[in-house]
């Protein structure tokens, strides 16, 4: 089994800092003034029901959506006020794993992985691209799928390839959108293991959006419970799970039923 050095969370260094974040769509208020910090080397799992604004949160962090109000500071930069060039430079330091993997249908696995590299790094030799692709594919345990098309892969394999595609640019922050949704428990467990492996091997800080309690417990150093656009509680899993707040208890009961 592969061994990694012991992972250290640096609480003096914040990689994502969100304060009083608001977002609405037409008349629907999705985020209602949420605040939290993600520390270097830390994994936070944002737990919430469908439609609670979890995906909107990471889309704002990656600059895909603009906030209505509030500050989103990522790696020391205010995302909402960056121009295209600076936003792209910041995005190279963030990996985004999509809920449905979002692999490019018209490209095979190799091309999917090489594409971000060739588009962002100039004058890279074919040999270097091949090595980088093979290394990340090996990390996610799918080296043998290098020439397959996305349509030939299972849901779990697609998720792994999606994660590999983000790793090829060596991101400092990973954003996972529902990494275990639609997967059977065994495949989910494999993805959770991979998230932890990425944290340790690539020394990333991660925000994991999920409604899966097992995923939140096993991959998050802390969890943030998002309900109706606000955080009910942010803390370690047991601290949140054993809370006496009726809404929090209601959420966990709902999940276990």
């Amino acid at each position: 089994m592969e061994k990694y050095s012991r992972h250290i969370i640096n609480k003096n260094e914040t990689v994502i800092s969100i304060s009083k974040l608001y977002k609405s769509f037409d008349n629907l208020e999705v985020l209602k003034g949420i605040s939290f910090d993600l520390y270097k080397g830390e994994n936070i799992a944002v737990l919430g029901k469908s439609g609670s604004g979890k995906s909107v949160l990471i889309k704002i962090i990656s600059g895909l959506l603009s906030p209505d109000k509030g500050k989103v500071i990522v790696l020391g930069q205010d995302v909402a006020n960056l121009n295209r060039k600076n936003l792209d430079n910041l995005r190279l330091r963030i990996g985004f794993s999509f809920q449905n993997s979002a692999l490019y249908d018209s490209m095979n696995v190799y091309e999917n992985l090489a594409f971000p590299l060739t588009m962002n790094v100039k004058n890279l030799s074919k040999n270097k691209i091949d090595n980088a692709v093979e290394e990340v594919l090996d990390s996610v345990g799918l080296l043998e799928k290098i020439n397959q098309m996305p349509s030939d892969l299972s849901g779990g394999q697609r998720k792994r390839i999606g994660i590999a595609r983000t790793l090829i640019l060596n991101p400092e922050i990973m954003l996972y959108d529902e990494p275990t949704s639609g997967l059977d428990p065994i495949t989910s467990a494999g993805i959770i293991k991979l998230i932890n492996k990425v944290q340790q091997k690539y020394n990333t800080s991660s925000l994991i959006i999920t409604h899966d309690l097992t995923c939140a417990k096993r991959s998050g150093n802390r969890i943030a419970l998002l309900n109706d656009g606000i955080f009910l509680k942010v803390g370690e899993f047991d601290e949140v799970f054993n809370n006496n707040n009726e809404q929090i208890k209601g959420f966990f009961n709902y999940n276990f039923l």
Binding site: D88, N120, T166, L169
Partner: peptide, 15 residues
């Protein structure tokens, strides 16, 4: 590509 988030995937890869 839009509805399967492939366009967003390009965007977040700085493409």
């Amino acid at each position: 590509m839009r509805v399967t988030e492939q366009i967003d995937a390009m965007e977040v890869s700085a493409i």
